[in-house]
């Protein structure tokens, strides 16, 4: 299973991508619960839809596009909380460790 987190927006508008490939049984066992904990069906699938759902004016904020296997999610940074935050932070940390 490949997991990727793409962060766009921000005042600098620099796109950053962090990826992790869980291709061993041990890695899949480690990542599966983190991925399964996220409510994939309750959030927008595209950054455009996520941006349209943001209430009020919040210029210069980040957006996250998250993929895990066939699943897709897009969230403004202020919605990256709870299990989403665990998934994003874990992916970023693992990606930076491997890089």
């Amino acid at each position: 299973m490949k997991i990727s987190v793409e962060r766009t927006g921000g005042i600098a508008a620099l796109t950053r991508v962090w990826t992790v490939t869980a291709d061993t049984a041990r890695a899949r066992n480690q990542w599966q619960p983190i991925v399964e904990a996220c409510p994939w069906d309750a959030v927008p699938k595209t950054v455009r839809a996520a941006a349209a759902a943001v209430e009020g004016s919040q210029p210069d904020r980040f957006f996250y596009a998250i993929r895990a296997g066939q699943r897709r999610a897009a969230l403004p940074e202020q919605s990256v909380t709870g299990p989403w935050r665990v998934l994003v932070d874990s992916t970023r940390a693992a990606s930076e460790d491997s890089g």
Binding site: G10, I11, A12, S57, Q58, P59, D60, R61, F62
Partner: peptide
Amino acid sequence: YDNAFWDG
């Protein structure tokens, strides 16, 4: 955190 923003 590598950003700055206005939250409204």
